[in-house]
Nucleic acid binder design. Sequence first.
DNA 1: ATAACTTACGATGTACGTAATGATA
DNA 2: TATCATTACGTACATCGTAAGTTAT
Lengths: 294, 294
Amino acid sequence: MDPHLLTTFVTVARHGSFSAAAAELGYTQSAISQQVAALEADLGLALLRRRPVEPTPAGRRLLEHAEPLLLRLRAARADVLRTAAEPRHLLRLAATPLAVNPVVAARLAEARARQPRLEIRLRMCRAERLAALVAEGRADLGLADGIAAPSDPLRLPDAGPMTTTGVTEEDLVVALPAGHPLAGRASLRLADLIDARWLRTPLCPPARLRDLVGEGFPAGLEYEGDDVRTALNLAAAGHGLTLLPASAVPAGGGGGGGVCAVPVAAPRLVHRVELLHAALPPGAAADLVAALSG
Amino acid sequence: MDPHLLTTFVTVARHGSFSAAAAELGYTQSAISQQVAALEADLGLALLRRRPVEPTPAGRRLLEHAEPLLLRLRAARADVLRTAAEPRHLLRLAATPLAVNPVVAARLAEARARQPRLEIRLRMCRAERLAALVAEGRADLGLADGIAAPSDPLRLPDAGPMTTTGVTEEDLVVALPAGHPLAGRASLRLADLIDARWLRTPLCPPARLRDLVGEGFPAGLEYEGDDVRTALNLAAAGHGLTLLPASAVPAGGGGGGGVCAVPVAAPRLVHRVELLHAALPPGAAADLVAALSG
DNA sequence: ATAACTTACGATGTACGTAATGATA
DNA sequence: TATCATTACGTACATCGTAAGTTAT
């Protein structure tokens, strides 16, 4: 169960090919073959069926363990290295697209006003990768957004010991095309929309949507990008509805061809932003955490 | 961050000695020295200060990560191997001393009555080790007991993905010596006992007691064993109070020199028993789980 | 026939043990 | 000075690459 072999195994399984894994990892096909063989010999059972390359049941089991295990290993390494790190004036912040709402942006501004030497590099990433990024120390702070019941924490993937703090909670709205029968309502229940078409976009993770709206919700268009205006334009054009924080939808829904934001009354849901970080590097990080936590 | 080196490092830190670690792991002193040096070189920082051998701050950090990491690694290995295991007729059960209460014992009997071929080997262990034992596959099922709010899960150490099921909940009582001023009461509040002396015993983990009773509770006698009758005898003799499940304290508190069990009315607490298991080996395990879950 | 994994084998590097050296109480 | 960790060095083993072999499409 050498992590080296585990990495190779995971890569082979992901590519479904020994040669592709070899290319990615910078080994020869032969070395990969030997490494997989060594892992199988160590465990005493076959992990991959060849030609086509696909995991056996035992292999599938191992895959479920290997990824989080390797993540924790990298996280531990990063954490130990942080104890000896230089104080940083540059903080690397990772955020999901909807996490930097007006409140968060304002608090970042306050922090920078108080600490002129503080530099911030903000980088966007998807929610699934955010926790890993922070755990591995490739970002100092993470801002994740998601949909939750009021005061409930977000369900983030477990990437080892990390601190999470609630930052903001705001109303959740459904973005409806201006001409939609429910547009203009003061609020609505998700149950009213059970047959509606939904926009599939990482802005509102499909997994979460399935929880909220039910299993077989009819899929509208799938938008793989994470630009809010694009999503709004698609919603306005009737490609499907989408759930967004109120602040992401421009006010004055009267304009022609726009979208209309209707708050979700039931179930009680909010759009929540959370700050997550591992052990903080010495320097300005602690101040920024305090500023963001409000 | 080779697990091999990590194991060595943890062992050295535990013994506070390279030579003792060498003896335990079956290496020479020299090999241990080289392994620790290799780990330090890999991370680029000192992990141990020598003579006396004790961890540096970075080393302490690494120790916090290493133990759970190695546990998860062993757990993953055990889980994968289980997928290819033979069906077992012998189930290895691990339990904390108070987990096998009358209800649990009865359910075990039912299961054995239904499945005559089923063999059970029951082994006692402390709560801290139980989760690790199950995760590593050294026990098939674990029965843990502890104190919790009604319907709340126990706070067990995280040892990787595991299923936990509530089995029983019963009243929590304070075992008081028969002559105690509060003996004979129908119920009491823990706050009434804030100045009482408590028996320190693994039967009622001191950490939990500290949560419940407050920080500086005066320590009575410390009993390192886990025999309930011994603890009751000590309580009867006035060495200190202890929290126990109602079924562990014999009824009829009138007898001379015995203990009197008084239920805890506030805070609302119960003695809870939970069943935990990883992926079940094929065979009788699933039936036993069903029987225990009731 | 060909793309893809496996096996054979030689070169390189890593890891351990023995033994000598160095440091500390 | 005795104990304990480190360093030096030789050996054994593990790992990788090249190249030949095998197998499924």
